[in-house]
Simulated scan of single mutants.
Amino acid sequence: MTSVLPRSIERTAAGPAERSIPRLKSRAGRSSLVIGGLLIALIVMALVSAGAGQLHVPPAEVLGSVLQRLGLPNGFEPTHPNGAAALWNIRFPRLVMGLLVGAGLGVSGAVMQGIFGNPLAEPGVIGVSAGAGVGACAVIVFGWTFAGPMTIPAAAFLMALVTTLIVYGLARRGGRTEVVTLVLMGIAVNAVAGALIAYLVFLGDTAAREQIVFWQLGSLNGSRWEQVQVVTPLVIAGLIATWTLAGRLDLLALGERAARHLGVRVERLRLTAIVLTTLLVAAGVAFAGIIAFVGLVVPHVIRMLIGPAHRWLLPGSAIGGALVLTVADLVARTAVDYADLPIGMLTALIGGPFFFWLLMRTRSRSGGWA
């Protein structure tokens, strides 16, 4: 049957839902392109980073070595007699560790910003990194060896979990957790943890102090396959679990009351998100030390590129975090000859000014802090 309505009336009668379908498709297509571009950039940077260093291995030979290990001879294997050994014993473990830690930090930042409803939030707000620092510094100073060579990572991981539970427990009243209270409790616990770390530095000898300072600045130096095997299942499980929260995080962005009316159990969601964030951050911090600003900068940049929808934001933040840490590690290994710069220092040099810009941008858009 032919419509007798004018075209203008037909367009009006179509309704906002039908008119928004092309817009949603366009946004999804753009998000796919951005994530695909980030993934390609990550692969390229991984090949470049693995081959860079005192013993240079071209990217084609790096890829050829990987394909050879997969049972695909290709004629591009490393020509240097020590090339394959350098790649598989030193650089690939470090590269994979950086990918895992960066992905975990990026997703953790996106989740924390979704939970707090604030783009200025980051994983350190709930004291994960500070708690891990206390555990690691205590082991370094007192020389505990309850877990052998894994004692420092184990202590850092356990203290990160304990600190987060303390913050959440103190902020919870009457079966509910207020975001403002959670942030303030996190600030207080971070201050106490900082004081404990300072006291441990005072107690330690010169060697312990140097180790503590380097650990607090973050580094992937010395990463081994044994450590990668510990971090991999924790990070992968955390990434998958956080992605399942994407829809509920989108609903939470409408406000707590609206989310509850739509069937979201806000407290359960918040607790689950905090636990998963702690898992991701603690797994990385335990082996790589404290690496600041990745969880703040990366999710915000990805959000500006593809929008706030968490089903795209979370994988984009994972890839973006891995890319940032891969580039930072490349600079740390190659910027100064025969030296390994702390990654946390490099990320702070970039993240600090970015945070300042983001702070002023947020203030100007909201018309002040009142």
Rank of each mutant, 00 (worst) to 15 (best):
I197V: 15
S223M: 14
A246T: 00
R265I: 06
V125S: 03
G143A: 15
I212L: 12
H261R: 01
A198F: 04
L234M: 14
V201W: 00
D250L: 07
A188V: 12
A237E: 00
E226C: 05
G174H: 09
V189T: 10
R176L: 15
N221Q: 10
W225H: 11
G169A: 14
A207Q: 12
L220S: 07
Q216E: 11
L161K: 01
V183Q: 09
L200F: 04
H261C: 05
A207N: 13
R265V: 09
G148S: 09
G143D: 12
L262D: 07
M150R: 08
A259I: 01
F157C: 05
A193D: 05
R172A: 11
T145C: 07
V180K: 13
A138F: 11
A171T: 01
I240E: 04
L161F: 13
E226S: 14
N221D: 09
R224D: 12
I212W: 01
L239Y: 03
M185N: 08
T232C: 06
L161V: 14
T244K: 12
L184T: 01
A155T: 03
G148C: 08
P233F: 09
L184V: 06
L251W: 07
G238F: 02
A156Q: 03
L220P: 02
V139D: 00
L254P: 00
F157D: 01
W144N: 09
